[in-house]
Design a protein around this nucleic acid. Structure first.
Lengths: 344, 344
DNA sequence: ATGAAAGCGCTAACAT
DNA sequence: ATGTTAGCGCTTTCAT
């Protein structure tokens, strides 16, 4: 054990082992051109001094390496967390460091975080579910040809950035039509604030399905203010405002969190799901299987989205064009107890 | 704009601005001994070259600084996430970087992560809710007098490490007694796997409350295997196993997550909360307010715990002894709909 | 197989 | 007020 106030350096290890710093370096990097005896001496010195290499020095020296940065609007949302999980697992396997930062749905915050990531030499950026107004930031990053960028749960309008999504339009269309096929004739859709294309596509799908069956009216689409309030809260308030003037037979939410808040409002008004009203969410977060009644929802393959994003941002050679930059993963519509047939 | 393949350095900025690197450094660090004209020239060059300082070089150079690392068992648990939020906010305000890593309830993983944090020169460690078997790791860290360590939701047996907790024994005792006072006479307690003192103290509180009222039997305490399964899942299975052979009138869980899984099992057996059975959780996660019925639970002041942990780990002078290293924050018992009086 | 020396980008002490 | 210089801890040629 050492009792010095500063951590040991490679020089001290070298001294103790009676070799040169460069030899220590070789040992630590598992070079095979070190004699076994020397290697052992070095390893012992490392242990004795409790030596850990200074990554700042290592990184400063080695300019060529891969380091990921993931940007998410909200670090507490299980949906994003699962995408990050997929990303993280791949990083661990590949031995790449990854930094996750929160952008709080604010372009300013996003800028700040990116500039931080740049300063620590992150060169592979994954934007997860951020707003549509940040495409300049991504392009700016790409000005340095060492950087890579990819999106998850986010679309690209420039045709240059690979992105992983599900067919949000289709998924939402089908979900809404499911409600209709089950005999709901007065259906509301509550959506989170509209800041990104996936949310727009879901809304478009919902509206088109409503129109197809002659059920669309402007007031059936309600925008919940989930930026200031929590999502649970805003779902609750949005549902309450609907119930103040109407008795829908079906309701769909743009996320499960929203749906759980809405559920509470329904119960307070004495409405039973699914007997009085059917309900559908979006995202299939963990808890949706366990709520009573369990929640019908759209599953996004979140970990897989993260894993694919890893491959895309990590591929240093691929060239992406409008023809090949969009990766659509399969979603699943999961019917659970919150939807009931009310035909005849 | 620059089209070089490598990011700009301070030297290039200096050259473009026609000054020395050290002047650029002064400008970037907001020194007041730079003439306004020079400052402007430098700032322009910075902008033109899209320059971001290389943090590795900065950190390598400046050996004295503060950098936090937070260790949590599970990055997806809202309870820990809120503690981290409190921590993060303080860090942002103070301008200290913070790294959060996941230890997955594994001592091995914890070792690995600590060695990583050491390599990036983290010198302030916050252990959140990790198992009791990692005290050596903490002591090892303290061998370097530059390091600081503190705990949150975790006790210290060495008397040297400041830790932030609530009175877990009292909280659990009171919660259990609440169930009893409301007339429950057949009560089960489902606890997460026992790996840390807070969980032990809760169990002790529960058992003592049961004993006080002559309600204790060994089989009333059920350990849910929440390490392999998710917490929701394991709550569900544990409750099912109880319902296979008994009809309790009250049930308490060591965490809200567990409780939500249990709730599902109860509903599948046709039991209504709180009419047939009363239920209490622990932690007061967001969702508990919105479940139907809403969940009676113990609130831990999570953000505050994080904020206090920040102060403790950041205070470079304080000396902690067994007499002053334990910080007990006030908890609240929150009575909601899931508990009902069944006395006559 | 091992050592010597240069240099990654930055800051701080000192010089001017 | 600004420039010069040394050196943080490491890796990587290049010698030996």
């Amino acid at each position: 054990m050492n009792d010095k106030t500063k951590p040991a350096t490679i020089k001290e290890v070298a001294q103790l082992a009676g070799v040169a710093p460069s030899t220590v370096s070789l040992v630590l990097n598992n070079s095979d051109k070190v004699r076994e005896g020397t290697r052992q001496k070095v390893l012992q010195a490392v242990k004795k001094l409790n030596y850990v290499p200074n990554n700042f020095a290592v990184s400063l020296r080695q300019s060529h390496y891969i380091c990921l940065g993931a940007l998410v609007p909200d670090l507490y949302n299980p949906f994003y967390l699962e995408i990050i999980k997929g990303l993280r697992e791949q990083c661990n396997m590949a031995g790449y460091p990854i930094y996750v930062v929160e952008t709080k749905n604010s372009l300013e915050e996003e800028k700040k975080q990116i500039s931080y990531l740049r300063s620590i030499k992150v060169n592979s950026y994954v934007f997860i579910g951020t707003g549509d107004d940040d495409e300049d930031l991504a392009q700016n990053l790409l000005a340095n040809p060492n950087n890579r960028v990819c999106y998850a749960d986010k679309y690209d309008s420039t045709g240059t950035i690979p992105h992983v999504v599900i067919d949000n339009y289709r998924a939402a269309f089908d979900a809404m039509e499911c409600l209709i096929h089950h005999g709901c004739d007065n259906i509301y859709y509550i959506t989170q604030k509209i800041m990104s294309t996936p949310v727009v596509k879901r809304m478009d799908g919902v509206i088109d399905a409503m129109k197809k069956h002659g059920l669309y009216q402007e007031n059936k689409i309600v925008i919940a203010n989930d930026v200031l309030l929590g999502k649970l809260e805003s779902g609750y308030y949005a549902m309450n405002s609907i119930l103040a003037q109407d008795r829908p037979t079906g309701v769909m939410a743009s996320s499960d969190y929203l749906a759980i808040g809405m559920k509470r409002a329904l119960s307070e008004h004495g409405l039973k799901i699914p007997d009085d009203i059917s309900m559908i969410g979006f995202d299939n977060i963990d808890i949706s299987r366990f709520t009573v009644p369990s929640l019908t929802t759209v599953n996004q393959p979140r970990e897989q989205m993260g894993a694919l994003a890893f491959s895309l941002v990590t591929d240093r050679d691929a060239i992406f064009t409008p023809a090949n930059n969009c990766f659509v993963l399969r979603h699943d519509f999961i019917i659970r107890e919150s939807v009931q047939n009310r035909n005849t």
